[in-house]
Design a protein around this nucleic acid. Structure first.
Lengths: 332, 332
DNA sequence: CATACTCATGGAAACGATTCCATCATGATT
DNA sequence: AATCATGATGGAATCGTTTCCATGAGTATG
């Protein structure tokens, strides 16, 4: 009942040539025009599709791109993945997706799985530090980091949003509105943003106002609620991602802090619901899809030369969640 | 510099046995206890990892699960993918992700790519009709549909949310509030929901109040705005997905329709921002992650028997976007 | 004691592609 | 005319694994 796949041998036999010739014709090698035409005709007639299995074994590598993300549920990573898929599709390459949950152990596990599969090109939002990636690099994989760097990364190129400028813009905007006690609500792997945040605030930085959550929604909410309860004197918050922003809105509402009257809120990453929120959220937009697309471009370029990383611009989009600091009412 | 991978031959040589024995030991075949131990020791010492490439070629199938979704940017599909990944991870199977954009042509292309890769297990949210999937089935692939059926599907098992009950609940809720002119704002592949909607409304159904958008945000917004402008007499809307719901909120705001005062809104699929919206959105929650997980379970079960599909419950979550119909003010 | 049967074992044949290499024909150069 | 370069071509090796089959040892049964 189930017929055997048509193989390159069948095509060779039907066209009256050797398998080597068929292979050459199909992969663009040299062949005489008439042979080429005959082979192509026969191949089309037999509906021949070369098996990636055979090719992969011979070439010692499975085509395809490994994509390692912390959480595909987060729309930021969803858009990033979309960018990777768009580029991969135009190159005809399959994408193998894995989620790490920001857990280095899971990440290492996934890397092992990818290498077992013969995947030799990986795009990752790294959670672990350099040690995890060292064996990967030694094995000769083509790597590109996206959105984050790995501490102690080798010379792995990275595609990043310009966090530096983004944080600076946000902080400038808030201080310009008169805010002094500004909190940062961060997620995993945002060391660079933190250092810029400290730097932008100059001497004003108050370490208690810097809180780092793990990747989950629960953790983000806990961090936000804890921060707001512990330091009711803060007047502005910079949330380092849409999950954190969501948590901040929720926690503020829960604690009867009105935005932007009692609390100015600015969020990294523009998401569709930012506009639907009450009030609409002021955000630092990041080109998530571009990040993915460019990362895929880099990892596919494969040209021996090491490309330097890419830095993509962010953009402040002012909506309604930030207001000038209310001057403390001394008579109240 | 780059050392050759350690192969099964190396292990066999170092352990003083044949390759067949090594293979048997590692894949759970029969072997004497002392041989088994020696082989396992040597394998561990050499850090031997069997190459999936060789195995795949021999077994004529690449492990792994193909996952075909309309749009990974949509959080519903993001959660669905998350479920699939969770199950696949526990089975140690890689997942190859492709997005169709609800375009049957792209879908067919992706199927071709998957078959070329030797993927023989696919989970899909189908956009095309039965004809597209016929060759797939004939080729002996294990298929599971998720979230949607393909019209004229063969005996492909499907994992679905209970749309029937969901639509009925929503309509009952709205009619219970006094609404009569209820619109349905649908997306691609929701034929079943539409028929249930018509059925639930009984004789009251007004075909002009049924609008179907394509998958994109733009299309959804256009559909919503067009509907609201064309039929200002409607008092309630059922949005068939979070993109449609988002569009409805946006369009209503644009047209100065206040929710729920002028317009009651109920949305399929509970998303985190539904709670952040003003007003918070009443929704029919769908277990997106479960759908993915169960689909992966089915496709991995592989037991020759054809499992029947799975129907998962939906849940009405009442928030603040629905209100009783205002009795028309005859003196106004 | 002879025969049959179980069980561990290793050699070798697949799997389907790519690619090295030898062969042969043709045309150009000396 | 002899040699050389060029280019098309097919046979065979190769990738790493699984699996079929033959072999031999050991045990049980007649």
């Amino acid at each position: 009942m189930s017929m055997r796949r048509t193989t390159i041998k069948d095509v060779a036999g039907a066209a009256g040539v050797g398998v080597a010739t068929v292979s050459r014709v199909l992969s663009g090698g040299s062949a005489s025009p008439e042979t080429r035409e005959r082979v192509l005709n026969v191949a089309a007639q037999l509906d021949y599709r070369p098996s990636a299995l055979g090719r992969n074994l011979r070439q010692q590598r499975s085509g395809g791109i490994g994509l390692l993300l912390p959480d595909i549920t987060d729309t930021f990573y969803g858009r990033l993945a979309d960018g990777v898929l768009a580029c991969a599709r135009s190159a005809g390459e399959p994408v193998i997706l894995g989620t790490t949950g920001d857990d280095p152990e899971r990440e290492a596990e996934l890397i092992g799985m990818l290498m077992e599969q013969g995947v030799d090109r990986v795009i990752a939002v790294p959670s672990g530090d350099g040690e995890i990636w060292a064996p990967t690099l030694r094995a000769g994989l083509t790597m590109v980091f996206a959105h984050r760097l790995s501490t102690g990364h080798g010379d792995v190129p990275a595609v990043l949003a310009d966090d530096r400028a983004g944080v600076r813009t946000a902080v400038d905007y808030l201080t310009g509105l008169g805010h002094r006690r500004i909190a940062y609500l961060g997620g995993p792997g945002q060391e660079q943003r933190l250092s810029v945040f400290r730097q932008a605030l100059g001497g004003l930085v108050d370490e208690e106002l810097i809180v780092v959550a793990r990747g989950s929604r629960d953790s983000a909410y806990a961090a936000a609620a804890g921060l707001f309860q512990h330091r009711p004197d803060l007047t502005a918050v910079l949330a380092g991602g849409n999950l954190l922003g969501e948590a901040a809105v929720l926690a503020a509402r829960e604690l009867d802090l009105r935005v932007p009257r009692d609390l100015s809120l600015i969020m990294f990453d523009d998401v569709p619901w930012a506009e639907l929120c009450a009030p609409p959220l002021t955000v630092i937009a990041q080109p998530a899809q571009d990040i993915g697309y460019r990362a895929a471009e880099l990892v596919l370029r494969e040209g021996g030369r090491r490309p330097r990383g890419v830095l993509l611009p962010t953009e402040l989009i002012v909506r309604g969640s930030c207001a000038p600091r209310r001057t403390p009412n001394k008579s109240g």
